[in-house]
Design a protein around this nucleic acid. Structure first.
Length: 156
DNA sequence: GCCAACGTTGGC
DNA sequence: GCCAACGTTGGC
C-alpha cells in the first residue's frame, strides 16, 4: 500500500464536499499536469491512502484522509466540450488525462498547516515535495515514514 | 532543440 | 492582490 497527498482548492472542492459523498466514490477529475497524471495512471492503486490538502486558502494544510478506490482511467471531463476541464487534444482513442476514484475516510481532528509541516523541513519531512520551495505538484507521493509522522502530529 | 513569451499555481 | 516559481507553447 502506498501513500499520497492530493491538493484541492476548497472553493472548488473541499473536504466537506467529499464528506457529503460519504460512502460513495468521487472521481478526482480535472488534473492537467503530466507528473500528477503519470502517478494516477501508473502508480495509484485501490487501498492506497491519501492526505486531502487544502490549497489557496488563508491557512493551507492537510485536513483529512481518503482512500483510493479505483486506479487510473481516462478523465471523461477532457472529452466534454461543456466541461471547464475540456481538452480538445485529448482523444478518447488516445486519452491524454487520467484520474482515480477516491472515497472519504475522515477529517483530521485539526488542520495540520503547511507552516507546521515546514518546521520539520530539516528533519522527518525533508524530502516531502510539498515543502520544497516552488513546489507546484498537485499530487505527490508520501513515504510510510512521512505518513505516520504527519498523522502523529494530529494529536499534538 | 532552444528559449522567450505567456499562463498557472499557490503562498503570503 | 502580488509575485516567484514553474510548466507549456510555439517560432525559429
Amino acid at each position: 500500500m502506498a501513500y499520497w497527498l492530493m491538493k484541492s482548492e476548497p472553493d472548488a472542492f473541499g473536504i466537506d464536499d467529499l464528506q457529503a459523498r460519504e460512502g460513495q466514490t468521487e472521481p478526482w477529475d480535472g488534473v492537467r499536469n503530466y507528473q500528477a497524471r503519470n502517478m494516477m495512471r501508473d502508480q495509484m492503486r485501490p487501498g492506497d491512502q491519501a492526505f486531502f490538502y487544502h490549497s489557496n486558502v488563508k491557512e493551507p494544510g492537510i485536513v483529512g484522509l481518503m482512500e483510493i478506490i479505483r486506479s487510473g482511467y481516462p478523465d471523461p471531463t477532457a472529452f466534454d466540450p461543456d466541461s471547464k476541464y475540456f481538452d480538445p487534444k485529448s482523444d478518447p482513442d488516445n486519452p491524454r488525462w487520467y484520474l482515480v476514484d477516491v472515497r472519504y475516510l475522515r477529517h483530521l481532528e485539526r488542520t495540520i498547516t503547511l507552516a507546521e509541516l515546514k518546521q520539520y523541513a530539516d528533519g522527518p519531512l525533508q524530502d516531502l515535495p510539498l515543502i520544497r520551495r516552488g513546489n507546484r505538484l498537485s499530487i505527490m507521493p508520501v513515504t510510510a515514514a512521512q505518513w505516520s509522522f504527519i498523522l502523529n502530529l494530529e494529536g499534538v
